[in-house]
């Protein structure tokens, strides 16, 4: 299955689920347009557009896909992006557990190590940067701007 066709089918399923969910909203009587009207109108529009996307993709044909040149420049390093997303997810999840300072220190250190040159000589510099980031943001936001940064269950 081609990519845009897959996206179109996914959107149709998504629209169907939300359309069903929108129908579960209880509308008050004597109101000409209930709260379900707008999401349902948008979902019908979105489903129509998804069909257009599928049709366009199928009509374009395989020959056109083959004809398209590859983008210029180096090949994207998806592993790094995936690693970034993984570490970031762990960071947000961990923040509720260990609190902002510890989670942020570990996240900055882990991400800069993971996407950097990974040299042991670089490590003290990365530790210093992680500590400085925590300290600077803590002082500016918590002490100066009164933004109470997330507390963890452990710390």
């Amino acid at each position: 299955m081609r990519r845009d066709t897959g996206i179109g089918i996914g959107l149709l399923v998504f629209c169907a689920v939300l359309y069903w969910q929108a129908g579960r909203v209880s509308a008050p009587p004597f109101v000409p347009i209930g709260p379900a009207f707008y999401p349902r109108a948008v979902l019908i529009l979105l489903a129509g557009l998804a069909l257009w996307l599928i049709a366009e993709d199928l009509l374009r044909g395989r020959a056109a896909a083959r004809k398209a040149a590859k983008p210029a420049g180096p090949a994207p390093n998806y592993r790094k992006a995936l690693l970034g997303f993984g570490l970031f997810l762990a960071y947000i999840a961990g923040m509720s557990l260990v609190g902002y300072p510890v989670a942020t220190f570990l996240f900055v250190l882990a991400l800069s190590w993971a996407i950097g040159p990974r040299s042991v000589r670089e490590l003290p510099k990365l530790v210093a940067i992680a500590a400085a980031t925590v300290l600077a943001t803590y002082l500016v936001f918590e002490k100066y701007l009164y933004v109470f940064l997330p507390q963890g269950r452990l710390f």
Binding site: G84, I92, S96, T104, I115, I129, T133, L149
Partner: peptide
């Protein structure tokens, strides 16, 4: 270098989202 910049920028983005009304759901 990007490996220094990216984590710091992400931390500031997290604070920007969180500080809106101090709830982790925003993050």
């Amino acid at each position: 270098p990007q490996h220094i910049l990216a984590p710091i920028v992400l931390v500031l983005c997290v604070i920007g989202s969180y500080a809106l009304n101090n709830i982790i759901e925003n993050v």
